[in-house]
């Protein structure tokens, strides 16, 4: 475990905490895409099936359980909780995420490390994570205004991806057999998707102004 990986994981965890805080404190999920949250829940469920087959470390197991649990809790809140549900921007969150799921599954069948059920599922989760932020970014783009906590949430998610890239570069040079090219290529795509958001995030930070995305 290197410092980039650990900071990346902590940033990922922080992003989820910020989202839970927003939902819990304001009883509102405005600006948050339910589609993206559902995709994340699917990503974690598909990838962490190995929870039952290979043990890596206590840290690894605990983090996996936290990610699965929190993503399911967020989806549950947005669908079932009376007050939270009311604030959901349903008419802005219209991205057809089923196409993403189908496309990623097809790609995972074609491009994987080994044509075996757990490997195909792993590749599927990697591809799906890379694109699962698209409905969220589309929703923000459509609404234009981004409230403070939602902005921090998306920023932390993007930062987590950027730190993972540094982690791969570090591991590539320090470990003899480290070549996770599927994860690296998908990770690069995922981070690139945030580039536009980052640009406006830094602009608003520099000008000390409210974060606004051009429509």
């Amino acid at each position: 475990m290197n410092v980039f990986r650990l900071t990346g994981d902590m940033t990922h965890l922080a992003s989820i905490l910020v989202l839970l805080l927003k939902i819990y404190a304001t009883k509102s999920c405005s600006g948050i895409s339910l589609k993206t949250q559902e995709l994340y829940a699917l990503v974690f469920l598909a990838r962490y099936l190995n929870l039952f087959t290979d043990f890596i470390s206590v840290y690894n197991t605990v983090m996996k359980l936290v990610f699965i649990g929190s993503s399911l809790a967020i989806v549950w809140c947005m669908r079932m909780h009376k007050m939270v549900k009311r604030s959901y921007d349903q008419e802005l969150d219209t991205f057809r995420h089923y196409f993403l799921i189908a496309g990623c599954f097809l790609l995972a069948l074609l491009v994987n490390e080994k044509f075996m059920f757990p490997e195909v599922l792993w590749a599927f989760s990697i591809y799906l994570e890379a694109v699962s932020t698209i409905p969220q970014l589309v929703l923000l783009q459509r609404s234009g205004n981004v409230d403070n906590l939602t902005g921090q949430y998306v920023f932390l998610l993007g930062a987590y991806r950027a730190l993972y890239i540094l982690n791969w570069i570090y591991r590539y040079f320090t470990e003899p057999h480290f070549s996770r090219w599927i994860a690296c290529v998908a990770g690069l795509v995922q981070t690139a998707l945030y580039a536009d958001f980052f640009y406006y995030y830094f602009l608003s930070w520099k000008n000390n102004a409210k974060l606004q995305l051009p429509s």
């Binding site: 990986r5 994981d9 990922h12 190995n50 290979d54 890596i56 470390s57 690894n60 983090m63 996996k64 990610f67 490390e113 792993w122 993972y164 982690n167 470990e175 057999h177 480290f178 996770r180 994860a183």
Partner: peptide, 10 residues
């Protein structure tokens, strides 16, 4: 064939 290392990332 080199066995691929366990997938230890989250």
């Amino acid at each position: 064939e080199v066995e691929s290392p366990p997938k230890d990332e989250l």
